[in-house]
Design a protein around this nucleic acid. Structure first.
Length: 672
DNA sequence: GATTTTTTAGTTTTT
DNA sequence: CTAAAAAATC
């Protein structure tokens, strides 16, 4: 295997397979190349694919790694490699071992909506005052506790404040509720494997043996649970390589601990360290801009990124009158860049700080007929009709899933209201049984009046019929479709969404959901089960979108948040909304999180290879009022000789006669 | 118990 | 302004 085209530091990182290794990799320093080549190198050294574990932080990064490794290995070996996010890995561990913790193997994953619903229910049952105990506070309290590996008892004893006592009770009840329905939340996907390993030495031994070679990407973003997972797994083998860059730590708000990377050599004795400082991505002008901004941060290791890819264009800063004007400027920039820099739309990205900003750009790009794809968005999954349809599917997979049953019991309206549900809950409490186990037994039905009895019976008959339907077919997508039709949800859509346009788009979405099952099967060599399908919706960013993308060659312009953009690169990058209180976000200013915000801006800037544009709007509408904005402080932190303030007219000079001739000639050739 | 009207709160970033 | 929750009405 030849790696001589790589620089000495990179080669060292690839060759040092045994023992702990820390790779400090600056932006664009060929980090993913190192990781993928390292994996290929290990395989070349006859290390078995199934003994290699590579974990990342985001779906995007995991996908990138898989795609890049595809170019270096055969698909047969590739399939045996363990590559994925921490959460997906945790899920896999639990799938085979969770019975040791008192859950069923069929466990499901509670998303944020489920979480909030459950906590609300608990708070209500306890009679907590909503003003004093905000749900979001309780939610983050529970999450923090899990991230600190605390049990409810430990939370109770962790402080004198009465709030901790209340939180401990909520936490305890919430966890019991989850477990009774065989549900785990996102934190559990990390927390439970650690518990499993701590409580079962043989299992830990087995996993240590299996995952003998560990690679962690974006190590600066790991939180306490993730670091602990890695520490436990690395065990005595210590064949662990972590890669990261403290300047790109942007997940502090989610509990990421920068000290994980800083203290790595102390935690793992004998750690080898290598630094990747040569940047292969950007022009020196872009690097100069990035370096200058990040220098304002005090809490960092000094690094000097350098590149030999020339000076390049200056960074252009363009000011729009308002946010609509900004989208127009972006559209013009994209069109013009395609012409001037000969880049296709796939090579361009629009980056924003917050998700809500994407909407206006989508509208503008659609109108301008520029192909685009929205990356990392969960908006499809969050649509009501999709969550309803998934709830219908969840109750077949796990009949214990009371949460999903309640969600769809009266969707479309079946005349089953609060009163009946209250009785169901009471009965559940008294007998400890799950809804689907008792709601059409006479023992329970006798508690209801005649009309309510009829309605429940009718629903259950319908459900059983639909359930039969599900095993009719070999094909998952066909089964899903048949089931949703039989149970009356497809027809019900018309009843639920009376506005015809609304109905049609919701119907389309449900069809898309079914179609994503087809695509999932197509992209996999193994048979896809309902469990796989549901899991893909819980853990992946947007299965419907992701799978679709594989089929079409032309993806168009990428729209995404700066957070999702980490690890990517594009020749042309436009960072929008560079206004104080938007980027940097107002809350980060209040909480003194400005350094993390600056790192975020650093990430945004370093995505660009050759052309970087920064835009802002002079006014922006917020809560229905037009507000004046101030330019982002990051703009003033850029060095004068690397940037240029431009207007559209200055940027877009009329085409030279020669160019026009060339284009016309090209067109003629195409038609000839 | 279902449906419509009124009130209120709400925008970081991801798994 | 919009979506969701609460209140009022059917």
């Amino acid at each position: 295997m030849n790696i001589s085209h790589l620089n000495p530091q990179q080669q060292y990182a690839i060759r040092t397979v045994d023992g702990p290794l820390l790779v400090l990799a600056g932006a664009g320093s060929g980090k993913t190349t190192v990781i993928t080549h390292r994996i290929a190198w290990m395989l070349h050294q006859n290390i078995k694919a199934e003994n290699i574990l590579a974990v990342t932080f985001t779906n995007k990064a995991a996908r990138e790694m898989k795609e890049r490794i595809a170019k270096l290995t055969s698909s047969k070996i590739r399939r045996k490699l363990n590559i994925g996010t921490f959460h997906a890995f945790g899920c896999k561990i639990l799938r085979f071992n969770i019975r040791h913790l008192g859950y069923s193997q069929k466990f499901g994953i509670a998303d944020e909506g489920d979480q909030i619903g459950l906590i609300k229910q608990v708070a209500q049952d306890m009679g907590l005052d909503k003003q004093d105990h905000e749900i979001s506070f309780l939610q983050s309290g529970i999450s923090n506790a899990k991230n600190n590996l605390q049990s409810p008892e430990e939370v109770r004893d962790s402080g004198d404040l009465s709030w901790f006592k209340t939180l401990a009770v909520v936490y305890d009840r919430y966890q019991n509720l989850l477990q009774s329905m065989d549900l785990v939340d996102f934190d559990d996907l990390l927390y439970l494997p650690i518990r499993l390993w701590r409580e079962n030495e043989e299992i830990l031994d087995r996993h240590q043996l299996q995952f003998r070679y560990i690679l962690v990407d974006e190590y600066q973003d790991t939180n306490r649970l993730q670091a602990e997972m890695i520490r436990l797994l690395a065990g005595k083998n210590l064949n662990i390589c972590v890669v990261g860059d403290d300047d790109q730590s942007i997940y502090g708000w989610r509990g990421a601990e920068i000290k994980n990377i800083l203290n790595f050599p102390d935690r793992f004795i004998g750690t080898q360290i290598t630094r990747l400082e040569q940047n292969y991505r950007s022009t020196n002008t872009i690097l100069k801009a990035a370096n200058a901004v990040i220098k304002y941060n005090k809490d960092r290791h000094n690094k000097t990124l350098w590149s030999d890819s020339g000076h390049g264009e200056t960074v252009k800063i363009i000011t729009a009158d308002n946010e609509t004007h900004e989208t127009k400027i972006v559209v013009d920039l994209l069109k013009n860049s395609r012409f001037e820099t000969k880049n296709s739309y796939e090579n361009m990205a629009v980056l924003f700080r917050s998700n809500f900003q994407s909407r206006l750009f989508e509208i503008a790009l659609r109108k301008a007929q520029i192909p685009y794809r929205l990356i990392g968005s969960r908006s499809f999954y969050e649509r009501r009709e999709i969550r309803d349809a998934l709830a219908y599917l969840k109750i077949i997979h796990r009949e214990k899933d009371d949460l999903s049953l309640l969600r769809i019991l009266n969707v479309p309206t079946r005349g089953i209201g609060d009163k009946t549900v209250d009785k169901m809950k009471l009965y559940r409490e008294q007998t400890g049984k799950h809804f689907l186990r008792f709601i059409d037994l006479t023992d329970f039905l006798s508690l209801l009046n005649d009309s309510a009895q009829e309605k429940i019976k009718k629903f259950m008959t319908c459900y059983r019929l639909a359930l039969d339907q599900f095993s009719q077919n070999q094909n998952l997508a066909e089964n899903i479709k048949g089931y949703l039709e039989k149970i009356g949800y497809i027809d019900g859509l018309k009843k639920i969404y009376k506005n015809n346009d609304d109905y049609e788009s919701r119907f389309e979405n449900v069809m898309e959901l079914i179609n994503s099952a087809v695509l999932l099967s197509q992209n996999s060599t193994e048979k896809i089960t309902l469990q796989d399908f549901l899991e893909s919706y819980s853990l992946a960013e947007d299965p419907a979108q992701t799978h679709k993308k594989d089929k079409t060659e032309n993806h168009g312009v990428s729209l995404m948040t700066v957070h999702t953009a980490k690890g990517t690169e594009f020749p042309v990058v436009i960072v929008v909304g560079l206004e104080q209180n938007l980027f940097p976000h107002e809350r980060s200013l209040a909480d003194q999180q400005i350094e993390e915000e600056r790192r975020l801006f650093y990430v945004a800037v370093t995505r660009a290879k050759t052309h970087l544009f920064l835009t802002r709007a002079k006014t922006r509408v917020k809560y229905n009022t037009k507000n004046h904005t101030y330019p982002s402080q990051f703009i003033s932190e850029l060095p004068d000789d690397a940037v240029e303030f431009s207007t559209l007219n200055e940027l877009f000079k009329p085409a030279e006669a020669d160019d026009v001739d060339a284009i016309l000639a090209q067109m003629r050739k195409r038609f000839a």
